[in-house]
Simulated assay, not measured.
Amino acid sequence: MRSFYEVSSNILYNYIHSICNFLSVAQKINTRHFPTNFKFGVANAATQIEGGWDEDGKGETIWDHFAHYHPEKISDGSSPDVACDSYHKYKEDVALVKAMGLDYYRLSIAWSRILPTGYTNQVNQAGVDYYNKVFAELKANGIEPMVTLFHWDLPQPLEDELGGWLNIETANLFAEYAKLYYELFGDVVKIWLTINEPKQVCQLGYGTGGFAPGVVSNGVGEYVCAYNVILAHAKAYHIYDDDFRATQGGRVSMVIDTTWYEPGSESEEDKEASERILQFSVSYIHVDLKFVLSIRVIG
């Protein structure tokens, strides 16, 4: 099965523009059958849409590296180099979101656009300025931002120097990174998502090798990764809870995905089989999450 990263982002962008242009001419999304407090939104990921992969001081990510050095692993040979060019066209993107009548715009902040090396001792002001412009544009159009701190685009130096999510130190660095972003953008951003789909990060990035950074570990690496990723989430959560929630009034969560399975029949054997695959699909993330959040993590 092809991943959405393996689909040409330019084709996807043109498709979205066609839909949104139609909506802007015809009508906004019909929300009258939903409760008045039900909010609609759209989501993206920095690597999928931004482009400008090395502009204005941005550092290399594992997806930049993966696409440049292993293009054969991406079915159509596309890369994050230009993508949807949202780095230059963010005003057009926001206009499309407004035309659709949406309430929220969920975007991810590229770790390496603000911290080119992955470490907080080198802050790229051009990256800070870019996201402030995006948030200002959203505010001007009455759209609330939701921000994902990590949508799979680990800075390449952390992969080279530490082994990425196979090293617990990456969780500590993520906590420092999250704290910086709360400080930079917390007055505007009130909904934070720490990690997007940790199962995909770990199974495909550090298990089968199908996603960046392409590590093949025969299953061992994905469990190490899972622990460190969930620990990173817990650290970031507690930092916000301890130091920022009272003054900023925001919320912090994460994005957990799963494939759902149903038994092929009413037989006990099929029921047990579907339950078993569900456990293998989601439980290693959930077990780590329950364990890590049950301890007091000092950021």
Rank of each mutant, 00 (worst) to 15 (best):
M1G: 15
S3N: 12
F4R: 14
S8I: 10
I11G: 05
Y13A: 14
Y13K: 11
Y15W: 07
S24E: 13
A26I: 11
A26V: 13
Q27K: 14
Q27E: 13
I29S: 01
P35Y: 00
T36F: 02
F38K: 08
F40T: 06
A43L: 02
T47P: 03
E50M: 08
K58Q: 14
E60W: 05
T61Y: 02
I62C: 04
H68Y: 08
K73H: 06
S75A: 13
D81Q: 13
Y90M: 00
K91W: 01
E92P: 03
V94G: 02
V94H: 01
V94F: 00
L96M: 13
V97N: 05
K98F: 07
L102M: 09
Y104C: 02
Y105L: 00
L107A: 10
I109E: 06
A110S: 15
A110G: 12
I114N: 06
T117S: 14
Y119T: 06
N121K: 09
Q122K: 14
D129F: 06
Y130H: 12
N132V: 00
K133S: 12
V134L: 12
A136C: 00
E137A: 15
L138W: 02
A140P: 00
N141F: 09
I143P: 04
T148G: 08
P155H: 00
Q156L: 10
L158A: 02
E159D: 04
E159A: 04
D160K: 13
D160N: 09
E161M: 00
L162F: 09
G164D: 01
N167P: 03
E169T: 13
T170Y: 03
T170F: 05
N172G: 03
N172Y: 10
F174N: 00
F174A: 01
A175H: 02
F185E: 06
G186F: 04
V188Y: 04
V189L: 03
V189S: 05
W192T: 02
W192A: 02
W192F: 06
N196H: 08
K199F: 12
Q200A: 15
Q200F: 13
Y206H: 07
Y206P: 07
Y206C: 08
G207N: 03
T208M: 05
T208A: 04
G209F: 12
F211E: 02
P213L: 02
V215K: 09
N218P: 07
G221T: 03
E222D: 07
Y223H: 09
V224D: 00
C225V: 08
A226D: 05
Y227N: 13
I230G: 02
L231S: 06
A232T: 07
A234I: 05
K235N: 07
A236N: 01
Y240M: 05
Y240S: 01
D241P: 01
D241R: 07
D243L: 12
R245Q: 14
A246L: 09
T247C: 03
G249C: 07
G249P: 01
M254C: 09
V255D: 13
I256R: 04
G264P: 04
E266I: 13
S267G: 05
E268G: 14
E269S: 12
A273D: 11
I277S: 01
L278H: 14
Q279L: 11
V282W: 10
S283H: 14
I285H: 12
H286V: 15
D288H: 13
K290Q: 14
F291K: 11
L293W: 03
I295E: 15
